[in-house]
């Protein structure tokens, strides 16, 4: 943490609760702090005004919503669903109707990344592809193939010139936007397991974040899985250097909490924030990034399935299984 800390993680406390009808799947804080967008186990996006508590729904998906992104001014919302669609929305409209509906992937859209320069929106999915779309027109700009498995997550480099994607088996590729083939960055073995009893793969980056200086990618998931079909494994965050693919550090929990890291963010004060859900319950974690174990951990009311840091860094929104979006204050 910096000397000019703006928050105190040890003071983290529940701030607000918003109840929906179904368990939540994802959440996303609008860059201008006006709204929090949620996905739930319905086919809707729920827009919540944290100030007033007003909720409205946005309908254009034919399945659950899994991923969100925003233009830097917050005027355009991008949503990706289990239906393979990428939808552009006027985020702040009184009754938002889709600006654009793109059939982006065969199978799920698992993640969305918006380039820092605002020009492109990237998606990845179960068709093992990474795609780059023009943020203004929705035109497909690039389509990258090279992963042999479902692509679980992706993020842009700070200069918007590279994309980093991670698949089911923990294979991280770097894609230069002007190159045809990926640069194999690293395979994070800890992010994947094959359960020989159930004969199934488990793993992948369920969450991703970039350090503030762009010098480290954090990949969250589940590790040391002893029973894939019961979800018996420990939470993990792997810190990878995007320049050389070196695995800098593996973050864990002190008490080896069972579960999956479903949300990650880099806090401007200089630490990682993560959320988990699973057998060990819901937790918020705070890691300094230079040591494997968290410096603080807070048990939540229920399991987390997604997390978003507010633009001012003072609040965290968590998508919970028990039909609630909750915000937590870090001050």
């Amino acid at each position: 943490m910096t000397a000019n800390a703006t928050v105190n993680p040890q003071q983290t406390k529940l701030l607000q609760e918003y109840k929906l009808d179904r368990p939540l799947t994802a959440c996303h804080w609008d860059p201008q702090s006006r709204f929090i967008f949620c996905g739930a186990e319905d086919f809707l996006i729920h827009r919540i005004d944290p100030a007033s508590g007003e909720k409205i729904t946005l309908a254009a998906h034919d399945s659950w919503i899994r991923a969100f992104g925003s233009s830097s001014d917050g005027e355009t919302l991008y949503s990706g669903g289990y239906d393979g669609r990428l939808v552009f929305w006027p985020a702040c409209a009184a009754k938002p109707e889709p600006l654009r509906i793109l059939e982006a992937h065969q199978g799920w859209v698992r993640a969305i990344a918006v380039s820092p320069d605002g020009k492109h929106v990237a998606t990845c999915g179960n068709d093992r592809l990474v795609k780059v779309w023009d943020a203004a027109t929705g035109t497909l700009v690039r389509e990258f193939s090279g992963h042999a498995n479902h692509v679980y997550n992706l993020i842009y480099s700070q200069d918007s010139r590279q994309l980093f994607s991670c698949d089911l088996k923990g294979i991280v590729n770097a894609w230069a936007l002007d190159a045809d083939k990926p640069r194999a960055l690293v395979t994070v073995e800890q992010l994947h397991g094959y359960d020989t009893t159930f004969r199934a793969d488990i793993g992948g980056a369920r969450s991703i974040a970039l350090r503030g200086d762009g010098g480290q990618i954090a990949l969250g998931g589940i590790t040391k899985v002893s029973n894939a079909f019961a979800g018996v494994g420990e939470i993990i965050v792997a810190l990878v250097n995007p320049a050389d693919g070196k695995l800098d550090l593996v973050l864990q929990s002190k008490d080896k909490i069972t579960g999956t890291t479903w949300g990650l963010a880099w806090h401007p004060d200089g630490f990682w924030v993560g959320v988990s859900g699973g057998g060990g319950g819901g937790w918020l974690y705070f890691w300094k990034g230079d040591m494997a174990e968290e410096f603080f951990r807070l048990q939540l009311k229920n399991d987390g399935r997604g997390m978003s840091l507010s633009p001012d860094g003072k609040r965290v929104a968590v998508a919970h299984v028990d039909n609630h979006l909750r915000t937590y204050s870090l001050v």
Binding site: Y82, R199, A200, F229
Partner: peptide, 17 residues
Amino acid sequence: HADYDTHHENFDFHIEQ
């Protein structure tokens, strides 16, 4: 054909199986 005992991540595993 095995296995479908998906107490965890039923949807991912049903895609796979």
